[in-house]
Design a protein around this nucleic acid. Structure first.
Length: 561
RNA sequence: UCGGGGGUCGUUCAACGGCAGGACAGCAGCCUUUGGAGCUGCGUAUCGGGGUUCGAAUCCCUGCCCCCGAGCCA
């Protein structure tokens, strides 16, 4: 697979099963998986887990993984989503080669197979309304009743089914159903609907069809056609496995092995396409790629890397237990990755001017600064030091509490990569607000120390006033819900539980001149403040602050509430 | 109530009849030319009750708890 290189995943229960199959020769040692998204939204980190499992398994066992869009419900699906999904999978580092498929490619085959089932007396056209079907289905404890249309002749069924396809009937008036067992304890086996009538434009087949296959009637057969060996899906499909197998076996076609695993849940994170779509539709966020969104495109804009996400997924592991992972694990992975690879730069969010009174007038010294103290290979950069600088407003206090090592009246600090400065005087405006600090520097403190071995405990970041570029910094908090994401209900209550408003724009920030040459999407670590990402879609100088990753204790505080 | 699936530190994943371990979180300390980093240290977790066994998280019986399932969604 393409970079980043992802190490083989540790053994999990799925791999045990695959190895057992390899030992017994069930699939002749072959492994073929598939990732089958419905193109009705953007991918989020929950999908990334399925992707890592599907593609990772194939890679580690010398097989391959197909990308197949499960596009059997035209009213929800769009080409925009198809493209976005492919982009996100590639971004994560996976490659499906030339094995791109669509369930809609199989509509004709599925139709013919349905006719086979009718001829075998295993499917029938049912005239019951949706409501009636529900009534006939029975309940958890009571068996269902047979549809009055269950025993039509093969000829009549074939004829009616052909007319359904021909568009002779309105939506919802008839269905094709599998004839299984209305008393089966598993609802999926109580004569499930195979086709519904839907006069709708499909994003790929247009108006060619007016009957569309249901998930159960399409999925297993699609897997079978593609020669999939292991069809991995989430726990929600456990009850569907008997039907999956019933269809393949009734058709007499090759039957893959369906294996279910637990989907990913993360504390505070909304991982439901239905809810995320609503966030977008209602304008609560700016789009699927809003940095607050838990979508992969959103995380990409936040500055999360594929490597960090894949690392997270690997640490989460795979099991059948229904669990919720602490969001702090994700953020640890992102922080660890970014700390290693993000170049450091300096910038001040709320500038306070510093004038160095003994600095030679008009002189500029270009000092050398390491880009990443943990990785020499990242090199150095030259940054301008001059007689007028900006420091962080928070780095100066009149009342210096115990343990305060930063600037205060008469205090001396080190400027990162620069010199020691001592604060001589604070200039105030009419309101008494400090607007400027007048300081003196020690010319002998260039290397960060002085010949007399004087110790300063504080080190501040800064930028040269005349060289700094203006930046707008946007502070985003990850979209989160205070409620258990699984309890988030539909309706008004939902948005009330979401912190979607947490976008803060800080104008007038000053950053190092070198940032102007950076490309959108580049990640930086601002000293002390955390991680920033140049917004790929905006003008240079616009920075997205990855607040939850930069501020480690955000979630910890939340948890204490 | 019927069917399916789960139950191991706070969280998550291991251990597959042989000393219950890792990661994250947390706590304590150290360190630092800012890194919310790093280093060091800290652990009474096998749902309960029986049974088999020299030995059980693991096998058997039994009870309890949790999740999913009654779309012409996927």
């Amino acid at each position: 697979m393409s970079e980043p290189v992802i190490a083989p995943a540790p053994k999990d229960f799925i791999r045990e099963i695959v190895e057992e199959h390899n030992r017994t020769g069930r699939f002749g040692g072959r492994v073929r998986t598939r990732f089958p998204p419905e193109p009705n939204g953007y991918l989020h980190i929950g999908h990334a887990k399925a992707i890592a499992i599907d593609f990772g398994l194939a890679r580690d066992y010398g097989g391959d993984c197909n990308l197949r869009f499960d596009d059997t419900n035209p009213v929800k699906e769009e080409t925009e989503f198809v493209d976005a999904i492919m982009d996100s999978i590639r971004w994560l580092g996976w490659d499906w080669g030339d094995r791109l498929f669509f369930a809609s490619d199989y509509f004709q085959q599925l139709y013919e197979w349905a006719q086979d089932l009718i001829r075998k007396g295993k499917a029938y056209v049912c005239d019951l309304s949706a409501e009636q079907v529900r009534e006939y289905r029975g309940t958890l404890t009571e068996p269902g009743r047979n549809s009055p249309w269950r025993d039509r002749s093969v000829e009549e069924n074939l004829d009616l089914f052909a007319r359904m396809k021909a568009g002779e009937y309105p939506d919802g008036t008839r269905t094709l159903r599998a004839k299984i067992d209305m008393a089966h304890p598993n609802f999926n086996m109580r004569d499930p609907v195979m086709y519904r009538i839907l006069h709708a434009e499909h994003h790929r087949t247009g108006g060619e069809w007016c009957i569309y296959p249901m998930y159960d009637w399409a999925h297993g057969q699609s897997d079978s056609i593609e020669g999939v060996t292991h069809s991995l899906c989430d726990l929600g499909y456990e009850d569907h496995r008997p039907l999956y197998e019933w269809f393949c076996n009734s058709l007499g076609i090759y039957c893959p092995q369906q294996i279910e695993f637990a989907r990913l849940n993360v504390t505070y994170m909304i991982l439901s396409k239905r809810h995320l779509r609503r966030m977008v539709q209602d304008g609560i966020v700016r789009g699927w790629d809003d940095p607050r969104m838990p979508t992969l495109v959103g995380m990409q804009r936040r500055g999360y890397t594929p490597a960090a996400i894949n690392d997270f997924l690997e640490r989460v592991g795979v099991s059948k237990a229904n669990t919720t992972v602490d969001i702090q694990l994700l953020e640890h992975c992102v922080r660890e990755d970014l700390n290693r690879r993000a170049p450091r730069v300096m910038g001040v969010l709320r500038p306070l001017k510093v004038v160095i009174t003994n600095w030679p007038a008009g002189e500029v010294e270009w000092v050398e600064a390491v880009n990443n103290p943990e990785d020499e290979a990242m090199g150095t950069r030259r940054i301008p030091f001059s007689g007028e600088l900006y420091i962080e407003r928070d780095d100066y206090r009149e009342d210096v509490p115990k343990g305060w090592f930063r600037l205060g009246p008469g205090r001396e600090v080190r400027l990162k990569h620069g010199y020691y400065i001592r604060c001589d005087e604070a200039v105030r405006d009419a309101q008494g607000e400090v607007i400027e600090l007048r300081c003196t520097y020690d010319p002998e403190s260039g290397g960060g120390t002085t010949p007399d071995g004087r110790m300063v405990k504080g080190t501040l970041h800064w930028v040269s006033a005349s060289h700094a570029i203006d930046a707008e910094v946007r502070l985003y908090d990850l979209l989160f819900t205070k409620a258990d994401p699984n309890d988030v209900a539909d309706g008004e209550d939902f948005t009330a539980n979401v912190n979607a408003q947490s976008l803060t724009v800080l104008a007038g920030c000053k950053v190092e001149p070198g940032l102007a040459e950076a490309k959108g999407g580049d990640r930086f670590q601002f000293l002390r403040q955390g991680y920033f990402c140049l917004d790929p879609d905006s003008q240079p100088g616009l920075l997205v602050f990855n607040r939850t990753v930069g501020l480690k204790d955000t979630w910890a505080k939340l948890q204490k509430k």
